[in-house]
């Protein structure tokens, strides 16, 4: 969320205004950044399972570690879900 002061409504004596009056001079512009966790079984670029609660780095492979020579392969289900979400 960002709040931008509207210059046209800015009085010269801003210091004397009450909180309500001050708030009324701002126009609220609200943007939502929504993070959705897709219900895929594997990661975006490799076949490592998505499970929570394991020890560090146990669901890793040459691809998601970016090991030299490895190549990503895109998860079809993730693409399909992204398209469905629009």
């Amino acid at each position: 969320m960002s709040v931008t002061p509207d210059a046209s409504r800015q009085p010269a004596t801003a210091a004397r205004d009450s909180g309500v009056e001050q708030a009324s001079r701002f126009e609220a512009v609200i943007g939502l950044e929504v993070h959705v966790e897709l219900n895929t079984a594997t990661k975006m670029f490799c076949g490592c399972a998505i499970d929570f609660g394991g020890a560090p780095n146990v669901r890793t492979c040459p691809v998601c570690l970016g090991q030299p020579g490895s190549l990503p392969m895109i998860n079809a289900k993730a693409v399909e879900s992204a398209i469905r979400l629009g």
């Binding site: 079984a41 594997t42 076949g47 020890a55 146990v58 492979c61 392969m73 289900k77």
Partner: peptide
């Protein structure tokens, strides 16, 4: 060109950080 959403084995735990 896509991959099926089917889990594949990950590296054994001691191999992930071996390098």
């Amino acid at each position: 060109v896509y991959r099926d959403d089917t889990p594949q084995p990950s590296l054994p735990a001691d191999e992930a950080t071996a390098t």
